[in-house]
Simulated scan of single mutants.
Amino acid sequence: MKFHLTVDNWAAQQADARAVRYDVFVIEQKIPVELEWDEMDAFCLHAVAYDEAGLAIGTGRLLPDGHIGRMAVRLAGRGQGVGAAILQALMAQARQRGDHAVMLNAQTQVEAFYGRYGFTRVGDEFVEAGIPHICMRHVFA
């Protein structure tokens, strides 16, 4: 699958990022819609991946404090490198602005995915929105 990424502010990415997050988190994972949206979106950099037809298939955000979050890939884009491209783009943005590390709260089922990109577990498992998570950190060399 061919796809391309854009990284921009919330004003530019909101419609497509919201659509992906709604499909993945609210519809598929049954996360209550009121837990999905927060005031931090306006302060984040957002990556959105698009397929060849121009459909948004994945998204993620980078918060001002170096946290990466709201990583989501629609079912049709999974296993195609979309999530990896989004993660690497957000990591590159963090590094470029001078962050020394990035953190994220990963669903435990995808710990190995983040581990492939140098993230290591920090602390104990916890539950967020009814789903087991772990905190993970990557320190830039």
Rank of each mutant, 00 (worst) to 15 (best):
D16E: 12
H133N: 04
A129K: 04
T108C: 12
G69I: 05
G83Y: 01
Q93A: 15
G98N: 04
M103Q: 13
I68A: 03
L5G: 03
H46F: 05
V122P: 05
G58I: 01
W37L: 12
R137L: 11
W37H: 10
L55A: 15
T59Q: 07
G115T: 08
I68N: 01
W10S: 08
N105C: 13
Q96L: 13
E52G: 11
I86P: 00
A56H: 04
H4D: 10
L62E: 01
F25L: 09
G79I: 09
Q80D: 09
F119K: 04
R74H: 05
C44T: 01
H67Y: 13
D65C: 07
N9E: 08
L62A: 06
T6C: 07
D99S: 12
K30R: 14
A11S: 10
F113V: 03
A92W: 11
V26H: 02
L62V: 06
A53L: 14
E28S: 00
H46C: 01
I131C: 06
R61M: 04
A129V: 11
D38F: 00
I134C: 12
F140V: 01
L63H: 15
D8E: 11
I31D: 01
D23N: 08
M103W: 14
R21T: 04
T108R: 11
H4K: 12
I131Q: 00
A17S: 12
V33A: 15
F43I: 12
A101S: 14
T120G: 12
Y50S: 02
D51S: 10
N105S: 15
V139M: 00
D16C: 02
I27R: 12
M136N: 03
F3Q: 00
G58R: 02
M40E: 12
F3L: 02
R18K: 13
E34G: 05
Y117Q: 02
G58F: 00
D124C: 09
Y50Q: 03
T108I: 14
N9R: 12
D23M: 03
A15Q: 13
I134K: 08
L35D: 14
E28L: 04
V7M: 05
R18G: 00
P64H: 07
V122F: 08
D23G: 05
I134G: 02
A92G: 14
F126H: 09
L90W: 04
C44K: 01
V122R: 15
G54E: 01
Q80T: 13
P32H: 01
A12T: 10
I131V: 11
H67P: 08
V139E: 13
D65I: 08
G60W: 05
A49M: 03
A89F: 03
G79L: 09
A129E: 02
A53Q: 14
W37I: 13
N9K: 11
P64G: 09
A129L: 05
W10T: 02
D16N: 11
A76V: 10
T6F: 03
D8Q: 02
V73P: 01
V24Q: 00
F43T: 15
G66F: 03
G79C: 10
M136F: 08
I131H: 07
R78A: 03
E36A: 06
I31W: 06
F43W: 10
F43P: 07
R78W: 07
G79S: 07
H4S: 14
Y50D: 04
E28H: 00
L75A: 15
K2M: 14
I27V: 15
D38V: 11
H138P: 01
A85C: 05
